[in-house]
């Protein structure tokens, strides 16, 4: 019995080994038929690194809706923040011979092996919201213009700060610096405040690594060190609950226009930010246009399949929503959707 089970396991592994060895040397499959040709519905594999925040959940829902609207079949995989698991999942897509891949990579470097694998299998691959590192691997990335949109948002906040006629002490919550989006947002903030030294003095830069607990601890510490802090920008709206909690604890959570109001700004456009805008607590947030980005991803895959040229980067200009344009812009804000 013991030897039989060892033999059975050995056979199973041997089969898998042969499969594994064969795989690396196997010739690439033929290029897919051009889009528009008659045949079964195309299948698109959608791989998300995480569903940790409302932005990713809303984006996945938008993909389901957009692909459904175009009669495309979607299969999904979530990597739970694990780059190696994501590599495995996208390779699964490739072995299932999907017609296109959309990927939110865990990071810019670890996604390169799977982009190369998709290239070898002639499957178009589009990166949603996070671009890859420079390499010879071919893909399209649809990304928000993090730098420009953040700069525009912070510039609006600075304009509101100027109206108070005094200088403000500012804090910025910085994301995970392994994420190029976080770097773009940090740089956009710095560029905006550099142009307004007479209005803004940055006294706290809180590294959050996209972690709410770290954000809350950082904000509480900064508020203790600088009780007169009156200007806060967060690199992502999902950190607002931490900021609100810390401000409430310090008795500084006031509506726009009320005495002692701390100017608040963010990035993303999630449901929390929408509620804070609607309730009058939030000054502005830079909104990533999820629907534009999702549509651009699907277009890029279909264009690539049709042999049309596809740019390496498609930029989502996004928009700034604030108390002055709330009604006009809310229809396009993904966080405002019920």
């Amino acid at each position: 019995m013991k030897h039989a089970s060892i033999s059975a396991l050995a056979c199973l592994l041997a089969a898998a080994w042969l499969a594994g060895c064969g795989r690396s040397d196997a010739p690439a499959p033929a290029p897919p038929p051009a889009a528009g040709s008659a045949g079964p519905a195309l299948t698109i594999g959608v791989s998300f690194e995480t569903l940790q925040t409302g932005f990713w959940v809303a984006s996945l829902d938008a993909f389901k809706a957009e692909l459904g609207r175009r009669n495309l079949k979607m299969i999904q995989a979530i990597a739970d923040g694990d780059a190696n698991r994501q590599i495995e999942q996208v390779k699964n897509f490739i072995t299932r011979k999907v017609d296109g891949i959309v990927m939110v990579p865990k990071d810019a470097k670890a996604c390169l092996p799977v982009i190369k694998a998709a290239n070898a299998a002639h499957i178009p691959i589009v990166l949603f919201n996070r671009p890859p590192d420079k390499s010879d691997a071919k893909s399209t990335a649809v990304v928000a213009d993090n730098f420009a949109l953040t700069k525009e948002t912070v510039t609006y906040m600075i304009g509101e700060a100027r109206k108070t006629g005094r200088k403000h002490k500012a804090m910025v919550l910085i994301g995970d610096l392994g994420d190029i989006n976080a770097i773009g947002r940090r740089d956009g903030f710095e560029a905006a405040v550099r142009e307004a030294p007479e209005t803004i003095e940055v006294v706290a830069r809180v590294p959050t690594e996209w972690n709410q607990e770290k954000a809350q601890a950082g904000v509480v510490n900064a508020l203790q060190a600088h009780p007169d802090l009156s200007f806060i920008f967060t690199s992502s709206d999902f950190l607002f609950p931490s900021i609100v909690s810390a401000l409430t604890g310090a008795g500084k959570y006031k509506k726009v226009g009320e005495p002692g109001h701390v100017l608040l700004g963010g990035f993303d456009g999630d449901a929390t930010a929408w509620q804070m805008l609607a309730d009058g607590y939030l000054d502005a947030t830079g909104v990533q246009d999820v629907y534009f980005e999702v549509e651009a991803c699907v277009n890029a895959i279909l264009d690539a399949r049709a042999g049309k040229p596809v740019p390496e980067i498609v930029k989502d200009p996004g928009f700034v929503i604030h108390q002055g344009n709330l009604k006009e812009k809310s229809a396009r804000m993904w966080g405002a959707k019920k």
Partner: peptide
């Protein structure tokens, strides 16, 4: 073994050579 045999007919690509290779590599 039972799990593999039970799911292979219903799971697209589960028993394919490519998938077994992926499985082994991970």
């Amino acid at each position: 073994a039972l799990y593999f045999l039970a799911l292979a007919p219903f799971t697209p690509g589960f028993a394919s050579v490519g998938n077994l290779g992926n499985l082994l590599s991970t």
